[in-house]
Simulated scan of single mutants.
Amino acid sequence: METWVIITFAAAFLQNIRSAMQKHLKGVMGTTGATFVRFGFGVPFALFYLLVLWRGFGHPLPVPDGIFFLWAVIGGLGQIAATFLLVHLFSFRNFAVGTAYSRTEPAQAALFALLFLGEAASQGTVIAIAISVVGVMIISVARTPLSVKSLVTSVFTRTAGIGLLSGTFFGLSAVSYRSASLALAPSLPQPDFVMQASFTLGFVILLQTLIMLGWILAREPDELKRVAAAWKPGLLVGFAGASASFGWFMAMTLQQAAIVKVVAQVEMLFTFASAVFIFREWINRLEVIGCLLIVLGVVMLLVF
């Protein structure tokens, strides 16, 4: 199995842990605070990884140029916008439909990669992406009343538009992170995907933390007290989040962002495994079908 696949599976598992912990934090603080924890408490771990690579293992530091900063800023802002839109969907009664459309991220990432990087996806990859996306969308709407008419009309709703826009920003940020990381390679004696990913993560997470901190200080200063009070679980969120992001960045340095994002859909399988075996929740027939489609899409990518 290729290195990027193993890294992606590990990152998906860690992201599932981070999401579960953030759900817990949402009960003791607002959405903004729970989102900030992901970045703010992740900074020490991201910088620690960078320091260990540089001082501990002797990896030379890259020298960023304008291209790196451009793509890193676009990626960081895009991820914040995507997350904000996704959270905003929860204010709608039929948010599940919008969430489903936000899961078109891999397909949109493939389009951005073609437009900005000239990375064309093969026919087999396009089919695998489509199968995986359909699987995730089925899971997202599996517990809502469904009919052919509702599926058709849902495409033109406000929630679907917000969901698609969220997927657009997620796809753009993924391609931007890959571009930023690749831009560091010429400044190194030889390409070093681990250092490139770590440096990109360190810069991006610092940028996102400063932006969100400024927003909280200006709009919701009381949130900082709730964040500080929850520092113990916050550290776990920060560790899992930074480690997962480190994995995504490494994988996307080695492989096209769209392909990595398809394999990353296995996070849904980890989520269902947790629901069934830890929380003793049941899953319905549509959710099982969605899971099987995700597996089929990932297997097609890895085999063909």
Score class of each variant (00 low, 15 high):
125 T>K: 12
53 L>K: 10
94 N>A: 13
115 L>H: 02
121 A>Q: 13
113 A>V: 06
50 L>G: 00
132 S>C: 15
48 F>I: 14
91 S>M: 08
120 A>T: 12
25 L>K: 02
40 G>C: 12
55 R>V: 04
27 G>W: 00
31 T>E: 12
55 R>W: 14
63 V>I: 08
54 W>Y: 15
46 A>H: 00
59 H>L: 05
119 E>Q: 14
85 L>F: 10
44 P>T: 03
96 A>M: 09
91 S>E: 13
47 L>W: 14
120 A>S: 14
71 W>V: 04
21 M>F: 11
132 S>A: 15
40 G>T: 01
101 Y>S: 01
50 L>W: 06
49 Y>M: 13
109 A>W: 07
68 F>Q: 04
106 P>K: 03
103 R>P: 06
114 L>Q: 05
89 L>N: 03
131 I>W: 08
62 P>I: 05
98 G>N: 05
28 V>P: 00
62 P>F: 02
50 L>C: 03
68 F>C: 07
65 D>M: 02
22 Q>M: 12
28 V>Y: 10
57 F>R: 13
137 M>Q: 13
105 E>S: 11
111 L>W: 08
87 V>D: 14
67 I>G: 03
136 V>C: 12
101 Y>I: 00
51 L>N: 01
53 L>Q: 05
60 P>G: 03
127 I>F: 14
59 H>E: 07
97 V>S: 02
134 V>A: 15
122 S>K: 14
54 W>H: 15
109 A>I: 12
31 T>M: 09
25 L>A: 07
101 Y>H: 07
71 W>Y: 14
129 I>L: 11
132 S>E: 04
55 R>N: 11
111 L>N: 04
22 Q>D: 02
102 S>K: 07
108 Q>W: 09
46 A>G: 05
59 H>K: 12
117 L>H: 05
122 S>L: 11
81 A>N: 08
54 W>N: 09
137 M>C: 12
136 V>F: 12
57 F>M: 15
51 L>M: 11
136 V>I: 15
94 N>T: 13
35 T>R: 01
89 L>S: 02
24 H>D: 10
125 T>H: 11
138 I>L: 15
79 Q>F: 09
91 S>F: 11
124 G>H: 09
20 A>W: 03
112 F>P: 05
64 P>A: 07
51 L>T: 14
34 A>V: 00
69 F>P: 08
128 A>C: 12
74 I>E: 06
132 S>D: 08
107 A>V: 09
127 I>E: 11
96 A>I: 02
108 Q>L: 15
61 L>G: 07
42 G>A: 03
77 L>I: 15
79 Q>S: 08
57 F>N: 09
22 Q>P: 04
82 A>L: 07
51 L>I: 10
61 L>Y: 00
78 G>P: 08
47 L>Q: 04
97 V>Q: 00
27 G>K: 13
127 I>D: 02
95 F>A: 14
33 G>T: 02
86 L>G: 00
137 M>Y: 10
135 G>F: 06
107 A>H: 03
31 T>G: 03
66 G>V: 04
106 P>Y: 04
25 L>N: 02
90 F>V: 06
118 G>N: 07
36 F>E: 11
102 S>L: 11
106 P>D: 04
23 K>M: 05
33 G>N: 01
68 F>E: 01
125 T>Q: 15
31 T>Q: 09
